[in-house]
Nucleic acid binder design. Structure first.
Lengths: 218, 218
DNA sequence: ATATTTTTTTAGATAAATCTAAAAAAATAA
DNA sequence: TTATTTTTTTAGATTTATCTAAAAAAATAT
């Protein structure tokens, strides 16, 4: 149906749309996809011809309903495969992104639905990101960055913002995992680092760490 | 490492090499891949530059050791994914080929080995074809076409030669599956059709059917 | 309001994989 | 052995996705 490249652009635009309510700019897409603005322009024309985006020269793009649905479908596949890799093949959560980037382009509706069933219809991927349903709707979860909590607040770890291997490995090393309860014991005014309680241990984490960890507060 | 197209050519040459002990001809590859001879020539030059085939103008090609190993790796992936689709996702054996054609190009050694482990190191795919081991060796099984058996002979069904959906569906419909015991009761001289015993039933099958079904004789 | 900077687009080039049509080589037939 | 047919290769074109460099438009600053 669509080329891998077209699918990657749709995915990028989909992600960028969540941040800007205006159209997404050519440069933003180029940045996200690590490519040149001129390549983006070329692709926007093609996606526009295929009615996947609304594109007006010099004014950026938005996804059409069709484009949104297609993008959600790709993200659905990506996240289902991530669950498969972690749950069934025993990969760790910092290894699955690159492989899922390939698997998300496998074209077979039946495969996706059978995979979903096999995995017992998971709602979230290994990083806590929601898995769009078949019709393209996202089951959003209310979550808050750990960095935004007040001293004394607590919550359960439900997701990560940064999914880089180095960040995830850091979490592993410190025993921070989805499902764990975290309580903010103290905030250091100087650098906004936090002292937190995790299980029966106490540890100190930087602001950068805290601003990449999502909690569900109780 | 290699493009999907390069991998498909290697696979095709690998399969064709099993039949001709001479080099594989350009036209044979074009036929196998449903493409034009001129496209094949172009690709052979490229594969030759990459030391995957021994190519001499007008004399066809053979795979180098490297080419053989690479091809075996792709076939390994294809067949492991077929096992996964049938055993874990509950696909039927006539549905898996097209999907495995896509999955075989996913590049991750770790994924292949984890998949192999998850499937408990299967030796054969759902059609009875052997799965090459990691180092590229094929565990060949001694098998005979049902059409070559004599009246009175019997054996266990271990594989199919034709893997088309229509053939596999025919087998399903008639209760013929891998692992089933078959005994040749009678052969019709006129058209070489066979009367066979399958479980407690007797059925008649054409020569074409019998010449696409592999048995292991006892 | 004009000049400067930034963003975006266009024009033209490149690489990969394919094609058609023509040329060259090899195989086969007379 | 020469002619014919078949196979294979070459030459040149096309499509997709990319790039660089230049031009055009929009945004920002003076």
């Amino acid at each position: 149906m669509f080329s891998d490249s077209e699918e990657n652009y749709l995915k990028a635009i989909f992600h960028l749309e969540r941040f800007s309510k205006e159209g997404v700019s050519t440069n933003a897409i180029a940045e996200e996809m690590q490519t040149k603005a001129s390549s983006v322009t070329d692709m926007l024309k093609k996606l526009s011809d295929k009615k996947l985006v609304n594109y007006v020269k010099y004014q950026g793009v938005t996804l059409t309903n069709n484009g949104k649905k297609t993008a959600a479908g790709i993200i659905r596949k990506h996240r289902l495969w991530e669950v498969f890799l972690v749950e069934k093949l025993d990969f760790s959560w910092d290894e699955v992104h690159e492989i899922a980037e390939q698997l998300e382009h496998i074209a077979s509706d039946k495969l996706v639905e059978k995979l979903d069933k096999h995995l017992k219809h998971p709602k979230f991927d290994p990083h806590g990101d929601p898995i769009p349903s078949k019709d393209g709707t996202f089951p959003e979860r209310d979550k808050v960055l750990l960095s935004e909590l007040q001293v004394g607040d607590s919550g359960v770890c439900v997701g990560v913002k940064d999914t880089s291997s180095s960040f995830l490995k850091f979490l592993d090393k410190n025993g921070i995992a989805l499902g764990k309860e975290i309580k903010v014991l103290e905030r250091e005014d100087f650098d906004d680092s936090l002292q937190i309680k995790l299980g029966d241990q106490t540890l100190t984490i930087s602001h950068l760490i805290a601003s990449n960890l999502y909690l569900k507060t109780n």
